[in-house]
Design a protein around this nucleic acid. Structure first.
Lengths: 233, 233
DNA sequence: GCCGCGCATTGATGTGGATCAAGGTTGGAC
DNA sequence: GTCCAACCTTGATCCACATCAATGCGCGGC
């Protein structure tokens, strides 16, 4: 932990915020280094810090009353996490565990809340972020209810492609397939089969290296029916 | 639509808010009556109003690019909806459709946002609500990934019981089983079988009337393993 | 009372995915 | 190089759920 902290420019969560406000937030922010596979925040505990991931990967998972656990999201720099819990002052709804060694900012929750109460600009910024987080959860619920694992994998791969115009793409999976399977809501074995199924649609894999030969075809496969505009329930 | 509106005391979303602020919100709020099975807001459109359900039931569903639709939540009075979309000024992430004839408040989005920007108390209140909404989505993702339909039904029934001490309970399902099935993420036929499976655990049904004979046993069935405190990923 | 329409249940069958159990690959220690 | 431990893939089998197809069962109209 080192007190020297610079939030300027690098943290999307605070993008566009007044420099003087940023400075005040820096005053109660610390940089933290954590080894791999460490619990950063524990579901059920009272929020102490808002975290921002600077380097490494963090897995968010939700544990049910019976102890079973579902991986909800894998974060990359520069994502924030547990924002919603900090803002509600309610116990963390998920557990955050490092996948790799990580560097992160820990922003004191009480001090931040205090600032939020008096600075509408900050409150609004956070409001937007929580709302966006909410939207990604809605999307995940929808995909779990409607799509097969292969389709979810296809969507995930397509989302890795930045250029919307590209007809082919090549990249490396950001983490191992066990984690990817959990993120997609299936077992590793099934993920393997999903990759095998997508092979027929121009998806080639060598270890963690992925090549999409025909993005249009993959898109068609991941999105089964043609977009009907019927607004039926 | 009638301009006479009273937000005081009845709307949890604004609970504890300064009366003068409430009054200002009332200034750009309208009461709306809508028949059954009408679309109130359409996914993809720009947010015009924040809605508060006063009477009736509203179904929220999310539509994928391919036109398939997943029911995400069924609302009861006095729930709000599309708060997150209003706050982000981004297109609605879900479609809201009335199930029964409804009465609702429609609060002008632009005016509300304007107020939010200058009134930290209001911003904080909404922050809490969006965060709570986020939490329920996380829970739903977890349940979809981990539980069977029968277990989800069990949890749903247990959640209908207000008294945590009760050993038995009797109540009426708030809507028909087709909707309940969609909410739980399964087909009507499967819900029927789930009810049949729970019959062995003290769940008795007569149409929409439900009797839970042994809440403890039902809880044990809906929550398969014993609560292990192991914090494994 | 009778009829007919919707909703609810029940059964038969097919598919997605979990689970169990081997093999195969890769990479690092030595 | 050998050995070993992760990780990945493949196959066989089972379970949860969807789907298709009959029925039952209320309930309002008449």
């Amino acid at each position: 932990m080192e007190p020297a902290v610079d939030l300027t420019g690098n943290v999307p969560l605070f993008e566009g915020l007044d420099p003087s406000l940023l400075e005040r937030i820096e005053g109660f922010t610390e940089t933290v280094s954590v080894g791999a596979d460490q619990v950063v925040v524990n579901q059920g505990e009272a929020p102490q810090h808002l975290h921002i991931l600077l380097d490494g990967q963090v897995a968010l998972s939700s544990t049910a009353a019976d102890g079973t656990t579902a991986l909800v999201e894998v974060l990359h720099p520069v994502d924030h996490f547990v924002l919603a819990s900090v803002l509600t002052r309610l116990p963390y709804v998920m557990t955050a565990r490092t996948v790799t060694p990580c560097q992160l900012f820990a922003i004191d929750a009480a001090a931040l809340l205090d600032l939020v109460e008096h600075e509408p600009a900050l409150a609004n910024l956070l409001l937007r972020s929580v709302s966006r987080d909410f939207g990604t959860m809605v999307q995940q619920v929808r995909d779990l209810k409607l799509r097969t694992a292969a389709q979810r994998l296809g969507c995930y791969l397509l989302a890795r492609v930045k250029d919307p115009e590209a007809t082919r793409a090549e990249f490396r999976l950001p983490f191992d397939k066990g984690l990817l399977a959990a993120r997609l809501g299936c077992r590793q074995e099934n993920l393997s089969r999903a990759f095998a199924a997508l092979r027929a649609h121009g998806v080639e894999t060598h270890g963690s290296r992925v090549i999409l030969h025909d993005i249009a075809q993959l898109r068609a496969a991941a999105v089964p029916d043609e977009p009907s505009e019927a607004g039926s329930l």
